[in-house]
Simulated scan of single mutants.
Amino acid sequence: MILEQNLIDIRGINPQELKCGSVLSGNEGNFTSPGYPDLYPSNVTCEYIISTSNADRGIRLTFSDFSTELDNDYVEVRDGNSSTAPLLERITGEPDISTLSATSTSSNMYVALVTDSSVRGRGFSAAYASICPNLLTDDKGGFSSPNFPSPYNPDANLCWGISVQPGFAIELEVTSFVTSPEDVMTIYDGASEDSPIITSLSGEVIGDYYSTGNNMYITFISNPANELEGFVVYYKQVCGNRFVDPSGTVSSPGYPSPYPQNANECYFISVTAGKTVQITFTDFVTEPNYDVLRIYDGPTAESPLLASLSGGETGTVVTSTSSKVYMVFTSDADTGGAGFTAEYVEV
């Protein structure tokens, strides 16, 4: 009776008309086609309505097994709670399950298995989970609180995931932030809320925050009252190897072991404003002309080129004219070398 009542509430239909199906709740779960792993029945439309508890999150649907009669028996996945919601996927036959998934934009998803009267298959085994629907994958971008600069919504539970290229990191710039003290943004150093916390923000703040890897996860939770204008945030992909102490050591990947083929590694050094950076290479052996370290007099690869080092360059000293240096080491697919190590110091 609970299932029947849920179906009436969600879709406004008589549950007696359904051949099979179920209403699924909770923030994660699993379900299968009827009879799985044995053959599913003929001439049925089995409807699965997934409704998770967080209205601000989406649903990620994945499959661990899928086999139906090609074209005639299929699964539809829709972005909502009914058969008229926008279609996300139509799946049939025996697709590659390693790439088979669908993601809704809200906390509701509709899944239907439709079969005919002929050949049957074993059907499917699926899993769903509540996820952040806001995944940002460009090298740079931004986001803001809903309605900005008008007040954000009460009882919000929002999230944003940022993922840039492997080997790089993320710089998050909070340019405007006005919330009540009880409404908190939390920035995580990784891809989920299980990652280490970089910082938590509330009240009135601005600032720059950095990940140590190529993923960052941000949540914002508000209480039922005292909504203010909210926030504006920008991000960009930056070098993952960051050095901000007055002195330190910079080395090629894996040093003292030989560096890998097809390397593309960056290094960013930032010392005290008004100082310069002196870099001394205590060891430098690369394949001449092909495996190269380029050193730029500034914070990016668009800054003026200070030096381009390749081959045997042990003992070389390079000094910047500013407090920031950006370096890029690239290698080709052929013979490598021991690589390099260098000591830097502000002067």
Rank of each mutant, 00 (worst) to 15 (best):
Ser83Asn: 14
Val75Pro: 04
Val75Asp: 04
Val75Asn: 05
Asp71Met: 07
Asn108Leu: 05
Asp71Val: 12
Pro86Leu: 02
Ile97Gln: 08
Ser106Ala: 10
Glu89Lys: 15
Thr84Leu: 08
Leu88Arg: 04
Glu94Phe: 14
Ile97Val: 15
Ser101His: 14
Ser106Met: 02
Asp73Ile: 07
Asn81Ser: 14
Arg78Leu: 03
Thr92Val: 06
Ser107Ile: 05
Thr92Arg: 02
Glu89Trp: 05
Asp71Leu: 11
Ser101Asn: 13
Asn81Cys: 07
Asn72Glu: 05
Thr105Val: 01
Ala102Ser: 15
Val75His: 01
Ser106Val: 04
Asn81Tyr: 10
Asn108Tyr: 09
Val75Trp: 00
Ser82Ile: 00
Tyr74Lys: 04
Thr105Ile: 00
Met109Gln: 03
Ser104Ile: 11
Ala102His: 11
Leu88Val: 06
Asp71Asn: 12
Tyr110Asn: 02
Leu100Thr: 12
Asp96Asn: 13
Leu113His: 12
Asn108Ser: 11
Asp96Ala: 07
Ala112Glu: 08
Ser98Leu: 15
Ser101Ile: 08
Asn108Arg: 11
Glu89Thr: 10
Asn81Ile: 02
Ile91Val: 10
Ser101Lys: 12
Ile97Ser: 11
Val75Thr: 03
Asp96Phe: 04
Gly93Asp: 02
Val77Ser: 05
Gly80Lys: 02
Ser107Phe: 13
Gly93Gln: 01
Ser83Gln: 13
Arg90Ser: 14
Gly80Ile: 04
Val77Lys: 03
Ile91Tyr: 08
Tyr74Glu: 01
Val111Ile: 14
Asn72His: 10
Glu76Ile: 14
Glu89Asp: 11
Ala112Leu: 07
Glu89Cys: 13
Glu89Pro: 03
Asn81Ala: 14
Ile97Ala: 09
Leu88Asn: 05
Arg78Val: 00
Ser82Arg: 00
Glu76Gln: 14
Thr103Arg: 15
Gly93Phe: 02
Glu89Gly: 05
Ser106Tyr: 00
Val75Lys: 01
Glu76Val: 14
Pro86His: 01
Pro95Asn: 09
Ser83Phe: 13
Gly93Arg: 02
Ser83Asp: 15
Ser98Lys: 14
Asp79Tyr: 01
Ser106Arg: 05
Asn108Ala: 05
Arg90Ile: 06
Ser83Thr: 11
Leu100Asp: 12
Leu100Tyr: 08
Asp71Ala: 08
Ala102Met: 13
Ser104Tyr: 09
Ala85Pro: 01
Leu88Trp: 06
Thr92His: 12
Asp96Lys: 03
Thr84Asp: 08
Ser106His: 02
Ile91Ala: 10
